[in-house]
Structures are given as structure tokens and as C-alpha cells.
Simulated scan of single mutants.
Amino acid sequence: MRPLRIPWIQASLAWVLASWMRLCFVTMRWSRENEAAAQAVWDQGGGVLCVFWHSRLSLAPGAWPLDRAQPVKGLISLSADGEFLAKAMARVGFPAVRGSSANKDKAAQAKGGSQALRDGLRQLKVGGLAITPDGPRGPAGVMAEGLGVMARMSGAPVVLMGLSCNPAIRLNSWDQAILPLPFGRAAIVWDVVAWPEGGETAAVLADWTERLNAAEARADALVGAGRN
């Protein structure tokens, strides 16, 4: 049995991860660029899609200012790994909307995805929904069409979040996720987009991919982190 399928191990590790993130968030020196664009979205209230690559998931809660911005829920997969992340993120102020995972059971996957879409659209009527568009299984850096469906159906603004920190531990995972270290440097670069009227999904997601990559590259440059 995988350790993350054992409830007490899952809960204990979630507590450890959340405690580690909180320590990092309060000790890192943050740089922020183009925050005025995000501030305009926060000021207007209502729904907002918060989008960042899966590899930077551990930084996102520290970048989103809960004292000024809309409350956010994270779209997290139905897998055991997703349950672990959901527990950890809830501890740092980001409860979950559970979505489908890369389940071999196609019927269960479709059912989970449909429920996540309904719950996500419901959340976007009142606040923010955080999405890693290349999660939960990748390919890394490739936006799934689900983000386009959410943006088109909700009409919510999309806040692209380029995130980075230095120093950091880079995990040997499918997305080469980074785990911040305390007392380092961190950066958030904001970019705000919206679904264009009559937009074609592939073209819009290609544009958003380019812009998110640019924001993340700028964040890497601000903290002196190398790009892969």
C-alpha cells in the first residue's frame, strides 16, 4: 500500500507540509511585479480564475493576499496524492474543490470531471478558483482544455501567476516541482487575461501558455533562479 493512502500518514504529512510552507512564507523576501493589474481584479470582487503551473503549487498560497483578494478554493484531483494536497492547502487557507484524476476508470474520471466543473463554476460566482492547468498528471507546461471551458462559461477574469523562489529543492516528480526553503527570495509576477469573444480554444490557450511562461521566467529572473 502506498503511504499516502494511509489516513494517519496522509494527515501527518499534510500538517508537516503546511507548517513548512507557513515558515517559508513568513521568512522569504517577496518581490512583486504588475500587482496593479491583479489589484483591479481584487477590487471588483466576484469570480476569478487563478492560474499557475503545477510545479509552483507550493508557492501559490503565499502569493495570494487573503487580506485583499477574493477567497480562493483550489481545484485538486480525486487521487490519494490530491487528498494529501487538499489537506495541506486547507491548513494554509485554501480549501479544495475536488476534480477528476488520471483514473483508469474512465466512467469515474468523467463523473469526477463533471462534478468538478459544476462545483468550480459555482465557486466562481462568489470568489476565486485556483487551477494548475497542467495538473494533476501533465504533461508539464501544457494547458488542458478544462481551463478554457471554465473561463468561457464563467466569464471570470483569469489571473496568471508566474511564481519562483531561490533557494529551493527541486523534486524528482513529473513536473519537477519546487519546494521553497526558508529565508530565501520569492517572486510573483501577475498577468491578467480574459476569454475573448469568439475565441478559439487552441489559440487562446497557446497565448495564455506563452504569457504564463513569460511571467514565470520573469519571476525566476527576479530571484536569480535558473530555468530548466
Rank of each mutant, 00 (worst) to 15 (best):
L121Y: 05
P180I: 08
R227A: 11
D119Q: 14
E210F: 12
L181K: 13
W190R: 06
A215N: 03
L59H: 03
R29E: 11
R5Q: 15
R91P: 06
L222I: 01
A219P: 11
A36I: 12
V142A: 13
G199Y: 07
G199E: 04
L181H: 04
T132V: 10
W195G: 04
A63Q: 06
A186E: 00
S79A: 02
G146I: 00
A214Y: 00
N172P: 10
G62L: 05
P157H: 09
L129S: 07
M1A: 14
L117Y: 06
L163F: 03
G162I: 01
W42S: 11
E197A: 15
W30A: 06
A214E: 02
W190M: 10
N34Y: 14
C24S: 01
P180S: 09
A186Y: 03
S154Q: 08
T132K: 06
V204D: 00
W195A: 05
P136W: 07
R5M: 13
R91T: 04
G162W: 04
E216L: 05
A151L: 11
A130F: 00
V193A: 15
R32F: 10
P95W: 05
R211W: 08
K125D: 05
R56Y: 03
M161Q: 13
A186F: 07
K111H: 14
L59T: 00
L78Y: 11
P182K: 03
L163R: 06
F84A: 01
W15K: 13
S19C: 12
M21I: 12
G127A: 15
I178G: 02
R98L: 07
A221F: 00
A80T: 08
W195T: 05
A116L: 00
W42R: 09
L171F: 12
R227Q: 12
W8G: 04
R91S: 10
P182G: 03
I131Y: 00
L121E: 01
V26H: 13
D175L: 02
S79G: 04
K104D: 15
G113M: 02
P196D: 05
V92P: 03
F52G: 10
G113D: 02
S164G: 11
I188D: 00
A168H: 15
A96F: 07
S114H: 14
G155E: 11
A14F: 07
N228W: 12
N166K: 15
P65S: 06
R152Y: 05
G128T: 09
L179R: 02
G184V: 11
P167Q: 12
Q115P: 02
G138Q: 09
W8S: 14
L179S: 06
I9P: 01
Q115I: 13
T132D: 09
A219L: 10
S31P: 05
G74N: 05
G74Y: 02
L75C: 02
W64N: 01
S19R: 15
G62I: 03
G135I: 01
S31H: 14
N213K: 12
L163N: 01
S164F: 02
